[in-house]
Write a protein that binds this DNA or RNA. Structure first.
Lengths: 242, 242
DNA sequence: TGATGAAACTATACGGCGTATATTAACCTC
DNA sequence: GAGGTTAATATACGCCGTATAGTTTCATCA
């Protein structure tokens, strides 16, 4: 176990990265089902079994991919929300979250399916492994949305929630970051997620295709309705001041 | 082509029904991926290839299952909505639709996945076959919801839709049944679908499990918010008259 | 410098999957 | 009884994930 054994470890990291990259490319081309060890190995010019040296099992590889994709989504949303957090526009975070979420989903439909659909035959791996990390980031972004909207939405809210309705670990992360957000505000964040998730998943999976040719118009209309139902102004601060 | 060949046709129909029933049982037990011809045949005590006499291909079988499940969902929703169409409660259809949709989804999560998720490796079959039938029924139920809510929601609606935004065949079915419903009302129906679909799909796929232990409370809260945003009374006509 | 041993990779095999083809048995119709 | 449709079978092929054993590569250290 030499301390200077950096070279082989670097090679190993590169090969690992290439495996994941090829797997993502295969998934983008043919869906999650196209992630087969043989196909990856074929693409890389090596044997399928060699991959077992990098991932204990195919599900491990898939789990890692899910984590990576989830992280990418979290990055996208966090970036979009940083640009919208000017404080003058309480609807900004909602619009940023919604736009980033749908935009990323439409740009990476296979990744969206991998994370939010049935991944592949196998099961989800770790029962508490790496996925929650990125999922937590997504949830915290949602809470930022809820925190921005809550002062406006609170008078309209009729939900009856308390902290015991939510995961204890989640609560510990939320309360320090958003001390002003009550349980009903957390619920609001999750509701906004579900609210917007529906149209996106229907669009990604093609279930809207038989009905409308303008899913974007539908989504924008729904977003406007969401903003209105939250008591938020429909557009930026300029219009709100008029 | 004898006219009296009823016996064999009856046997054939029975075997066909048994194949589908076994396939649904397998799906309920192990997810859509568990639908394998071999497993079905094993369960029925015959050879996998014998199924090719009843279904040209495995995808044909899956398509038929999707159609059956979709029909069951449409039946459930239509029944629930018939019970809510007393005319005195404009929010009744929305609540009936939402309750029936989520209730059916929770009672048949595998069926829900089959219809609204990635079915199985293979493709969807007919590009215009049997599935649209049931999908149309679901859509018409949605339009009944929208028609009941539209007189209340219209003043709040800010969508800008016209008929060209929707499928021509769909329009022909909608207009005779709901002549008072403008394009924005149709969009409202689809939006309600997407609105409620999101939380249900997140719950079915387990993505809410890490956050909340009360998905039902969350859904009811969201439903109340939907009713409010539509300008509808939150409960039955009794409360509305107060 | 050269042996050592871990790591990367290959070769081969097994069972399960969907599918295709050819074959046999049962049945109704004429 | 003959002809033709249908049910069911046996067998084979290729692809999949996985397991095991064997081979090459190469950093490490005496």
């Amino acid at each position: 176990m030499g301390v200077t054994g950096g070279r082989r470890e670097r090679l190993r990291a590169e090969t690992t990265a290439e495996i994941k990259q090829v797997a993502l490319a295969l998934m983008a081309a043919g869906g999650p089902d196209a992630i087969t060890l043989r196909a990856i190995a074929r693409e890389m010019g090596m044997t399928a079994n060699a991959i077992y040296g990098y991932f204990a099992t195919r599900d491990d590889l898939v789990s890692t991919l899910i984590h990576d994709v989830n992280t990418e989504l979290a990055d996208t949303i966090e970036t979009a929300m940083r640009g919208a957090a000017n404080g003058d526009d309480p609807g900004g975070p909602v619009r940023a979250w919604a736009g980033a979420f749908r935009g990323w989903a439409l740009a990476n439909p296979q990744g969206f399916r991998l994370v939010y659909g049935d991944p592949v035959p196998g099961y989800r791996a770790p029962e508490g492994g790496a996925a929650p990390d990125a999922a937590l980031r997504l949830c915290l972004a949602l809470m930022a949305v809820a925190a921005a909207a809550w002062p406006y939405a609170a008078p309209l809210d009729e939900g009856d929630f308390d902290w015991s309705d939510f995961d204890a670990g989640l609560r510990e992360k939320i309360r320090p970051a958003f001390p002003e957000l009550p349980p009903a505000g957390v619920a609001l964040g999750l509701r906004i997620w579900g609210h917007l998730h529906g149209l996106v998943v229907l669009e990604i999976y093609g279930h809207l295709r038989a009905q409308t040719s303008s899913p974007n118009k539908l989504f924008q209309s729904e977003l406007a309705g969401l903003l209105r139902s939250l008591g938020l102004p429909p557009a930026g601060p300029a219009e709100r001041l008029i």
